[in-house]
Computed example of a mutant assay.
Amino acid sequence: MSPPILQFGTGRFLQAHVDLLVSEAAERGEALGGITVVQNTRDPASTRRAQALAQADGFPVLLRGLVAGQPVEMRKTCRSVREALHAVDDWPAVRDRVRETVRVIVSNTGDNGWALCRDDGQSLLADTAAAPQSFPARLLVLLHDRWQAAPATGLTVLPCELVARNGAVLGDLVVAQARAWHCPSPFVDWLLTQVVWASSLVDRIVSEALEPVGAVAEPYALWAVQAQPGLQLPCRHPALVVTDDLARHERLKLFLLNLGHTLLAELWSLRGQPAGMTVLQAMQEERYREPLEHTWLEEVLPVLEALGQRDEALVYLDSLRERLLNPFLAHRLADIAQHHEQKKQRRLLPVVELARRHVPGLAQPRLRAALKSS
């Protein structure tokens, strides 16, 4: 029997977070089952990772950081991945997995992973068709297969992309694609009522990849999932939290951690600093640390306070400073600066827009300057 979890993406974050949490849960008998990983691209590095992921002996994840001020280092062996397929070369096999036993579909497809492709069309629903080019279209074909083969069997789609309300947004994309392809209305109704589009938030700094597979990450981990009827989880784990208010978790991570990373990358790019500069090095320099702290306390915290999250934000900031000062992670600002303009729009602009509505007159000079430099 094939694994009940299908994962789109082979990157280091999924290895050190989703795959590791499922592996740890499986050791306690609290995982849904194993994982089939699907490689999305033709990138040679992804191919090497996929080939190594399929090895039966597992892969290493190194957890390094500070916990209550004390250094911690643990070596984990992740054994949750059972097989690795390619989304194009192995498309018939991917379709078979969803028709048969998959109960949860997880994704982390990168910053542009949800972009649609004009060349994808209704003909791709045919049994012998090639794989669509875009991830939303691939997901649509797979769900159409499931609807035809086992419409009464529950299925949860659990995206990990850093998009607010990511489950709802991805569901809207797939439903819109289904209507554009003139899919039958019973299938569209099934997408809307029988598939659980689970919004989630992932929070773990994964700083380095190991070769050929594996990752270096911090000990801290959070996977928060919006509660809703019919939700199936890939595992039970202390780091996997089901919540009625996912937005509170999203705001803390997006407006403090992710915004902080992007602001440091902005300062680094403007100052022409060395390519190998890390978050730790920036946090240890006053010319980086001071503007970051000012932005958190003077431009972001008043917004969170207006939303009733001041105390939560202060607690999160205390732990976040320790995480960013982790002496064991080589988290390069050059890596954070990839897709920088899109990240500024997702991480900085919402804080400015919320301030306009909830804290009129809040100046936010550093956030506005960073947005103007786009």
Rank of each mutant, 00 (worst) to 15 (best):
E83I: 03
V104C: 00
L143S: 01
V169W: 11
S80N: 01
T101K: 14
E83N: 08
V102G: 00
Q133M: 10
A87G: 07
W91C: 04
A130P: 10
S134P: 07
L142Q: 13
N112H: 15
D90P: 09
D111Q: 15
L140N: 04
H86R: 13
R42L: 13
T101S: 05
E83S: 05
G154C: 01
F135N: 02
A168P: 04
D43S: 12
V141L: 10
G69Y: 10
V102K: 09
R82M: 05
A87C: 10
W114I: 02
V106E: 10
A137K: 14
A45P: 06
C78A: 06
S134M: 09
W147P: 04
L116R: 15
W147K: 12
V141G: 07
C160Y: 12
D127V: 04
A84I: 03
I105D: 07
R138E: 06
Q122V: 12
R75C: 06
A164P: 04
A152E: 14
R79I: 00
R79D: 03
D90N: 13
Q133W: 11
R146H: 02
S123A: 06
C78T: 11
E83P: 08
A126F: 00
T109M: 00
R64F: 02
D57Y: 09
A126W: 15
V169H: 13
R79W: 07
A84P: 09
R97I: 00
L158F: 05
D90G: 04
D90R: 15
A168N: 10
R97T: 00
W114F: 15
P44F: 07
A152V: 02
V72I: 00
V67K: 14
A115K: 15
V67Q: 13
P71T: 11
A129I: 06
F135C: 07
W114H: 15
T153R: 15
Q70C: 04
R64N: 08
T128P: 02
A137N: 09
L124S: 11
R42V: 06
G121I: 01
G69T: 04
P44L: 11
S107P: 05
K76E: 13
G154S: 04
E83G: 05
T47R: 14
W91V: 03
C78W: 09
D57G: 02
S134L: 07
R103W: 10
N166A: 00
F135K: 15
T101D: 14
A150M: 05
T77G: 01
C160N: 11
E73A: 02
Q133E: 15
E161T: 04
I105M: 00
A84K: 10
A115N: 13
A164W: 06
G65L: 03
W91S: 06
A126N: 13
T128K: 14
V141H: 07
Q133Y: 10
Q70I: 01
L63W: 13
A150Y: 14
D90T: 11
L143G: 00
T77Q: 12
P92M: 05
